[in-house]
Design a binder for these strands. Structure first.
Lengths: 206, 206
DNA sequence: ACCGATATCAAACGTTCGTTTGAATCATAC
DNA sequence: GTATGATTCAAACGAACGTTTGATATCGGT
């Protein structure tokens, strides 16, 4: 039930994000979405054309900014000259962390992202690859420069493992429960710190 | 379309496993499942009672054996006396690897497992925790003994990261595509090796 | 004030969903 | 061989699905 001062499109996107995170793409119906957004059922097809298109827009809205921030952070690290592994990892992870702390639904979106990984949906995978594949390539290049002793294949295996761990950690799927007295923000910041430390050691492994 | 010499129940479980892996629990219908299994639509409710119960049975069938193997492997490692980190990790990961190489649907099941992580379904989480939580406790204890310098909280963070990386790596979600000329079996065995090396280094990090 | 475009609405479209029913079929024991 | 319980079957149940329709409301431009 989003505040009514947002536009119809924005309210639909916000409600869809939340419900896709909770019930999955097939599990959340347009009737649930439009009810939560306080808009008419037909509004989804009017503004987005179809449920599939709505799903893509849910991704585009967040990923455009997320990946721009990642590239900006990476450029900043590279400009510094003597980048280290932790800095490059932070350039990738920190924007996801900040997104997950966003008050307007970002924490739902990181869970939607984890859903997307689990979906082997061909259309969705192509959409993500077409629109954001270049970001992964940029980071792979930065890691390759920092880890010259690793073969290309070895490097890709490790980056694969890192992205899996990142996705799960950000989506809060694990057994770790936030302790009372620790704010959501602090909890996620610690997750990012642990993740960076762990991933850096894993990437450096002999 | 499973061979007809399996029982109705077995064919339903096999088809459900495959379709749940491909389309998710909400996305795969009982009509798809029963058609793939070559059984009557009503057979699911006759043999399992409901779709929810069918989902639980899909998990139970594999996890009973998977976790028994994990505990057996861990016991063997502990019996050796001077267990190291890689051995304990292998005791956890190798049974999952072997399952993923199983010819009768195991590779579908590891993807179903990844779906389960993405689901925040309360019933499913309680079912998994009630039935298999003790296995995770056993392994956490083994890791704690091997990493005495880590605080309890630090250790749990790292195990959380390991389990996320494992789930994704086994489910084959990453960007790594199997090269032609490398068999499915070899591909997955390499994944397990990389995972163990990476995780060991991450767990040992200062 | 009126027009045309944009947006919202209730209602219905045909389809598919999980589940249930009751009859037909099968297997086993006497 | 026939009675009994377990299983399979086609058919139907009501509910929910994504999408479309046509009428109604809203609003900026002249």
């Amino acid at each position: 039930m989003l505040a009514p001062h947002f536009s119809t499109k924005e309210r639909i996107l916000g409600a869809a994000e939340d419900l896709f995170a909770r019930h999955g793409f097939a599990g959340a119906s347009l009737r649930q979405v439009t009810a939560a957004a306080n808009v008419n059922l037909a509004a989804v097809n009017y503004h987005f054309g179809s449920k599939e298109n709505l799903i893509e827009e849910v991704f585009r809205r967040r990923l455009d900014e997320l990946n721009a921030r990642r590239l900006a952070a990476l450029a900043e690290v590279n400009a510094g000259g003597d980048a280290d592994l932790e800095q490059v990892l932070a350039a990738f992870i920190r924007p996801a962390l900040e997104l997950s702390l966003d008050k307007t639904g970002g924490s739902a979106f990181v869970r939607v992202l984890a859903r997307a990984y689990a979906e082997h949906n061909e259309r969705l995978r192509r959409f993500l690859s077409d629109n954001y594949g270049h970001v992964l390539k940029e980071f792979a290049g930065a890691f390759a420069r920092l880890l010259p002793h690793l073969g290309k294949e070895e490097l890709y295996w490790r980056l694969d493992i890192v992205s899996g761990a990142l996705t799960y950690a950000m989506a809060d799927f694990g057994v770790i429960k936030r302790k009372s007295g620790v704010s959501e923000q602090t909890h996620r910041e610690r997750a990012a710190e642990h993740l960076i430390r762990f991933a850096a050691a894993g990437l450096r492994a002999a």
